[in-house]
Design a protein around this nucleic acid. Structure first.
Lengths: 189, 189
DNA sequence: GTCTATACGCGGATAGAC
DNA sequence: GTCTATCCGCGTATAGAC
């Protein structure tokens, strides 16, 4: 439809509900209430419920991509630092920010075909960033295994944290990233 | 309600639909059609839709637990073999069997409080088995890291395979398990 | 154990006034 | 840009016959 600041704000509020309840269980009435408007008004901003989901996922992936790129630019250029930075960025968008990126990962299947086609290049760009970092770590002998599989396993380990991580617990996303890298790293390498 | 063979069979069919569509999007009419009966008849076997989910998750976790125990009994007693056997068993119940165990992992949140209370001991037993195997591998110096976190990361890596694994592709669950163990294992250890 | 028929509330979405 | 009012189909569940 457009990308007014108003719509951006509504998208953020939708993301929160989608994480809490799941897309299917979130009703347009719930969304409207969270946004402080009536359900009829919602359709002035979004064509239908599907479009809200697409907006959230686009926002979440773009955000994750931007944060990951910034983290890689900021850190040292050795493979270990880059791997740690990437993992930390990923976990922060999932666990601290706790909204749009989670939706992007967990509700992707709920997108209809056109939205999926439109957004898959974004998702691919984010995953390509990951594969780059993994590749460097493999080439340096920091970790070992198959390029494709290591990427999937690492992303899986990180994505699943959403299910068990306690934000009020002792560990920060940064510490988690450190533990993951330590687990994967071969001291002898 | 009970656990007649009839009900077991219906539960298996429900599992398949829950994986394909997700619990929320699966209607009782769809379930009935898959089972070859009318929707009204469904409620002779299950009190409500929630009870179907609980039955599927119970079945899926019990099955995974049984297969994992059998795999551990059958394999060599060194930590590497045990880790591999556990990973392979886990992946087989997720990727080959492709039903009830997936539901147990991905639809757990949809259980109501009483069902969750009733089933959590089962889930805990399965996770305890994992922690045992991880503990042994840590003690042997095969892998390294924090007991709790390694377990979560490993299970996350495996659970996420459901999202990208192609059953018609080249790799078997056994090969995947091997790759995971290789990734985690320190040759120098 | 399965059927038909049906109740009934809820969810997505629209129309048109302000 | 938001409201009120409303449509209508669908989803869960029940009743009672066979």
């Amino acid at each position: 439809m457009n990308d007014s600041p108003r719509r951006k704000e509504l998208t953020r509020q939708a993301a929160q509900l989608f994480v809490q309840e799941g897309f299917d269980r979130t009703t347009v009435r719930m969304l409207a209430q969270e946004m402080g408007i009536k359900s009829g008004s919602l359709f002035h901003h979004f064509r239908d419920k599907q479009e809200i989901l697409a907006a959230v996922i686009e926002e979440g992936t773009e955000n994750a991509l931007g944060i990951a790129r910034a983290a890689l630019d900021d850190c040292d250029s050795d493979p270990a630092s880059r791997l740690h930075a990437m993992a930390r960025a990923h976990l922060e968008t999932l666990l601290t920010d706790r909204n749009a990126h989670v939706v992007a990962l967990y509700e992707w299947r709920r997108l209809d075909a056109p939205a999926r086609a439109h957004l898959s290049h974004l998702r691919d760009a984010y995953e390509a960033l990951w594969e780059e970092v993994i590749d460097d770590a493999l080439a340096a002998g920091l970790i070992r295994g198959d390029r494709f599989l290591v990427s999937r396993f690492v992303m899986g380990a990180l994505n699943w944290t959403v299910r068990w991580y306690d934000p009020d617990g002792e560990r920060t996303p940064d510490e988690l990233a450190g533990e993951l890298v330590a687990m994967l790293t071969h001291p002898a390498g």
